[in-house]
Amino acid sequence: MSTTVVNTGTEGKTWGGGNEPLKASYGKMMMWFFIVSDALTFSGFLAAYGFSRFKFIESWPIADEVFTHVPFLHGQELPMIYVAFMTFILIMSSVTMVLAVDAGHKMNKTKVTWYMFLTIIGGLIFVGSQAWEWATFIKGDYGAVQTKGGNILQFVDTDGHRVALGDFVVAEHKDRTAHERKNGLWFVDEGTLPTYTVDEVIKGLESHENVLVRTQIINEEGEKTVLSRAESLKQIKENGKAVVEGANLYVNEYGSPLFADFFFFITGFHGFHVFSGVVINIIIFFNVILGTYEKRKSYEMVEKVGLYWHFVDLVWVFVFTFFYLV
């Protein structure tokens, strides 16, 4: 097509093409726009969390009482410490990422390689920590009784310290076994049965004078309401329906099941972002080692991946605030 006209006569003019008014490459700009849309997705989730929380403002679980565990420190109540550690790990891996980008600008392959490596390690520690958080949350620690209306009744002693079900309830012999597909209807399944039944909890409560029931309702001091001894027995006997140990998408021993649902969904979605970030970082890491960006004479790819990685950190800052602090 030698007759094709290639000159438009507008070269060098504003609309002549080849102009970059934003002084950013196509890839970088698209990464920014993706980040905006992803930020809106996350805000949608967090706003929905806020909606449910405002809806149940008088009975929402207190995060400080839920996330109190630190690995290797059993039985100690250390709220926030582990999440703070996770936050620091993620910020730290953001720092190594931005150092990798900086080294990339200086075309320093060795430094980029090392900083990318450290970033990946940080990401893996974070994902591992999150898996541990999930496991602890699913397992639960004290156990509770759910009422007919879906409220959660927890147990405390007369000093207000939490009491685990195992401390005052005795499991008796049960004829009821968990229904499995292999010994009943093959298309019906049921989860693990709780260790205790409601009747056993009632017996345990009757024989332990110092155990009281604590409801979900938050009083004026910002603490959960503790019932009197008579009220406690009445509540459990009249309304107790199921024993709850730990948390899943249906029940949650810490309070509203919605809290568990949002926890799994939002931290899960964020954890998935971290996981994909780690995978992308590993791909870029190998590209760096293979010298792809040396040949390209630009480490801009590291910068683009860096934007995504920082965004994951940015989201965590908000998740941290709204799930653990506020």
Partner: peptide, 24 residues
């Protein structure tokens, strides 16, 4: 990037929190 996100997020948060408070 910033103004778009900030505007839309404020809008969404306002509506949802207002509604949540009303239902409460």
């Amino acid at each position: 990037v910033v103004w778009t996100a900030v505007f839309l997020i404020c809008y969404l948060v306002f509506i949802l929190l207002q509604e949540g408070g009303y239902i409460e």
